Structures are given as structure tokens and as C-alpha cells.
Simulated assay, not measured.
Amino acid sequence: MSSPCDPANAPVGDVGAALMMVDSRLHAIYDDKTDADPEQQELLDQFAATLGPLGVDALLNGTCTLIYMYMKWLRMACQEHDKDVIEYVVPTLVATMRMMPRTFRPEVIPTMAGLVVAAGTGLSPNLWRGQYGRWTDAEMNPLEATAVLLAEQINRISDDREFATRLIAEALTATDKS
């Protein structure tokens, strides 16, 4: 029986824009900047201002697609080592979220963990979240940060700071060619 949260039923969204935002945040982390680069932040703010309501929805869906794709990669990596992706990823992710109270207010941590669990079990994170109503403003930064944390975990596992970005870019390129 098919689930209403099956990824085949989910909109993909603007994965390219979501990847650009995640990659920008990763570079800020790796460049050891405690504050975002003002020039980079201005570019991101200008980009966000041009989106409009449909663009914001596409960016949200694109970010959820990234979370799904990152969790799919992590699930396959865990299976190669006979590990459970939920057991391996979620406790560390939640612990990290709890250490970042300005980004992850306590009330959004269960939602972000739920998105990761949904993706880790093969469900669409945006369709799973959609069961509970519209996204809230309080969930916007945590959603982006969740994607960044997953990408950073993949980069650490692969010992390559560009791996998570390249993984998605190559998938987008392969999709464009077919």
C-alpha cells in the first residue's frame, strides 16, 4: 500500500536555490566565520526578496528534497556498515540542535527531527510536515539549518568538504541530461 507521504507524490521544488543556500552556509562554517559574510548574506537576502510566495514554497520544497536526498545517501552509507540510519543520525542531530538555541528553539526540534526520521524511513519530509498545516516562520531557519547539518555530516563522513554539494549537483546534472 502506497503512503500519501511517498516521495513520488512530492513536489521537488527549487533544489538549485536550496543547494546554493546550504553551500553558502557550509562555506561560512568551513571558513571559520562566526558571522555570515556580509556580502554573501546581502546576496542571499536579495535573492530571498525576489522569490515571492510561490518562490518561497519552491525553496521550502527544494530544502525538503535536499533533506530527503541527504538522508537517502546516509541510509545507504549506514546499510553498508549494518547501522540504522535513524539510530546513527537523529541523536547526534538533536544534540547539535539543542546546542544551538538561537537557531533551534526547543519547540521546533521535534519537527526537524520528524523531518529527518520521515526522510530516513523513505517518506517525503515536505508531505510528512504538510499533514500538520502550513510552515511557520519559526521553522524557516531551523529547516535550512537541518539541511546544512545533514550536509556537514555527509562531508565529515566522506572527509570531503564539497561532497554533499557535489552529490546533489551531480544528481541535478544527471536529471537534466535525461
Rank of each mutant, 00 (worst) to 15 (best):
M1N: 10
S3Q: 05
P4M: 11
C5R: 13
A8Q: 14
P11F: 02
G16S: 13
G16V: 12
G16F: 02
A17F: 06
A17I: 02
A18I: 03
L19F: 04
L19W: 01
M20Y: 11
L26C: 15
H27Y: 09
D31T: 06
K33G: 15
A36P: 00
D37K: 00
P38V: 05
P38S: 12
Q41A: 08
L43N: 09
F47P: 01
A48S: 09
A49Y: 02
G52M: 09
G52H: 03
L54N: 07
D57A: 15
D57L: 09
D57F: 09
L59E: 09
L59G: 05
N61E: 11
N61L: 10
T63V: 07
C64G: 07
T65H: 03
I67S: 02
M69C: 14
Y70T: 00
M71K: 00
K72S: 11
K72Q: 13
L74W: 03
L74Y: 01
L74A: 04
M76K: 15
M76N: 14
M76Y: 15
A77N: 10
E80R: 14
H81V: 11
H81P: 12
K83S: 12
K83H: 10
D84E: 11
I86T: 10
E87T: 11
E87K: 15
Y88D: 07
V89T: 04
V90R: 01
V94T: 15
V94P: 00
V94R: 01
M97S: 02
M97Y: 00
R98W: 06
M100K: 05
M100W: 10
P101S: 12
T103R: 10
F104N: 02
P106W: 06
A113H: 02
A113L: 07
V117R: 01
V117W: 00
A118M: 09
A118N: 03
G120F: 09
G120Y: 11
T121P: 01
T121W: 10
G122W: 03
G130M: 03
G130H: 08
T136R: 14
T136S: 07
E139N: 07
M140R: 11
M140K: 13
N141I: 10
P142W: 03
E144P: 04
E144H: 15
E144R: 12
A145T: 05
A145E: 11
T146P: 14
A147Q: 03
L149M: 12
Q153G: 13
N155A: 06
R156Y: 11
D159K: 15
D160E: 09
A164F: 05
A164I: 01
I168C: 04
E170W: 12
A171R: 14
L172F: 12
T175H: 13
S178E: 09
S178W: 07
